[in-house]
Simulated scan of single mutants.
Amino acid sequence: MIECKDVVRMRVPFPSISSNLAVQAHMYVCIENGSTKEFVKCQTFKPVHKIKHKYPLRFVEEEANIQRNPFSKKTTIDCDKAFVLDGVVVGLDLLTTSRRDVCEDLFNIIKSETNHSQFRKEQVEPNEVLNLNTRMQASG
C-alpha cells in the first residue's frame, strides 16, 4: 500500500475520460493516505507555468535530484488542486522506480503550498480510474 510522500504513475480521468490526464500517465504525489487518498499532479516544467493568472497558479518548481525526488527533468507540482481517490487500491507497482517518494523537505513545501483557501479537491470516479489503470483494483 502506498503512503504519503510516495510518487505514482497513473492515468486520471479529469476533466473527462478522454483528456490528456486520462490518455497519458502522469506522476502524482500522495499528500493524504488512508481509505481515501489525495494526489497532486506533477508535470515537466514549461516556461508557460510562470505566467501569472494561468494554471497552475500555485505550484512548486523542483529540479531533478534523486536525493529529493524521482523526477528525471525539472518538474512543476500543481498545488491548486488534489485528485481524491476513494474505493480504489493504489498498488506498489504504480510507484516510480528511481525513487518511490519525495523527501520530507519537499513534502513539507508541497503541504504548505496546498494550504490555501482556493485549493480544490476533485473527486475522481473510481470505475473510470480502474478502467484506465489496469494494475489498480477496487477496495473492499
Rank of each mutant, 00 (worst) to 15 (best):
L21P: 00
R68W: 05
M1Y: 06
S139K: 14
T36Y: 10
S112F: 09
N65H: 14
A22F: 05
L106A: 02
E113T: 13
K74T: 14
K111V: 10
K46M: 12
G87H: 05
D105N: 03
H49G: 07
S117H: 09
E38I: 10
Y55P: 04
I109M: 06
V124I: 15
S139Y: 12
D105E: 10
E61V: 13
Q137M: 10
H49E: 03
S112A: 10
M1F: 13
D78C: 13
R9W: 03
V7K: 02
F45I: 13
N20E: 10
N33H: 14
R100Q: 06
A64T: 08
D78E: 08
S72W: 11
C42N: 04
V8C: 06
V129M: 08
P47N: 13
F14P: 00
G91H: 08
A138D: 04
G91K: 12
L57P: 02
M136W: 07
K74L: 11
E104T: 04
E62Q: 14
K54W: 07
E32G: 01
I51V: 15
P126L: 12
A22L: 02
V124W: 04
K52A: 15
C30M: 05
E61A: 09
N33S: 15
N127L: 14
N69Q: 09
L57W: 07
A22S: 08
K74R: 15
G87A: 06
K54Q: 14
F107G: 01
V88C: 03
C42M: 08
Q67D: 14
T134Y: 08
D101S: 11
S35I: 12
E125G: 01
R58H: 15
K50V: 13
G34A: 04
P126S: 05
R9Y: 09
S72I: 15
D6C: 09
I31G: 01
A138V: 12
H116F: 05
Q118T: 14
S112I: 05
N108L: 10
F119R: 06
G87C: 07
V48M: 06
C103Q: 02
P56R: 07
N33W: 12
K74Q: 13
L106E: 03
V90W: 04
S35E: 14
Q137N: 14
C42E: 07
N69T: 13
V88K: 09
C4H: 11
L106N: 02
S139L: 15
K111I: 14
K54E: 12
K121D: 02
R68H: 11
K111Y: 07
C103M: 00
I110Y: 02
P13K: 00
N127F: 10
L132T: 12
E63V: 10
V60P: 08
E125N: 05
K50T: 15
S117A: 11
I51H: 07
A25L: 01
R9H: 09
N65C: 14
P15F: 02
Q67L: 14
D78S: 06
N108F: 04
D86S: 13
L21S: 08
Y28S: 04
